[in-house]
Amino acid sequence: MSEDKINLLLVDDEEALLDSMRRRLELRGFRVIAVNSGEKALEVARTTPVDVAVVDVKMPGMGGKEVLLALKQEHPDMEVIIMTGHGSFDPHEKDLAGKMHACLAKPCDFASFQQTLMDAYRKSRK
């Protein structure tokens, strides 16, 4: 990775997965803020620079779709990647068009995940 660290916001209510992803990404040079709810994600994004957000779809309280829409409304240049372990999420919904960088199925190959993060970061810098 380049000298510039990517500011990454991870949002998932599964604490073990969140911690594991945070550690793996920090070892690869990402600056990671990990939170376990959509509400906390919005608070963090309002006070901390975020280049890319990775948001789980199914969470108690504010779900991933709502987090995505709120993040994009408040931070239009932030790239958002949705992760889902549920087949009921439709990334092609009309109100989501053009708002997410990618939608990945959990679990996903870590190398592919890292490449998607890098692509999202490059897009956020244009």
Rank of each mutant, 00 (worst) to 15 (best):
P107T: 11
G63H: 10
A105E: 13
E74S: 09
E93Q: 14
H75F: 01
V54D: 10
E93F: 03
A102H: 10
A16P: 10
V80C: 04
P49L: 05
K72R: 15
L25W: 07
R125Y: 01
Y121L: 11
K65D: 05
D51K: 08
R46Y: 01
V11W: 00
A97C: 14
I81K: 02
L8P: 06
Y121F: 15
E3I: 14
K99R: 06
V44I: 13
L8V: 09
G87P: 12
F113M: 03
L104N: 01
K99N: 07
F89T: 12
M100I: 07
S2P: 14
P91S: 01
L71R: 00
F89S: 05
V35K: 01
D95R: 09
G63W: 06
K106N: 03
M78P: 03
A34F: 02
L42C: 00
S37E: 05
P91Q: 07
D56G: 12
F89G: 03
K126L: 14
P107A: 02
E39H: 10
K94M: 13
G64H: 06
R122H: 15
S2W: 03
A45K: 11
P60Y: 07
D95G: 10
V80A: 06
M21K: 04
K65E: 15
D51A: 03
V54P: 02
I33A: 15
G64N: 02
D56N: 10
K123L: 14
V54Y: 06
E14M: 09
A45V: 06
D12R: 02
E14T: 05
D12M: 06
A41Y: 00
S124L: 00
K72E: 03
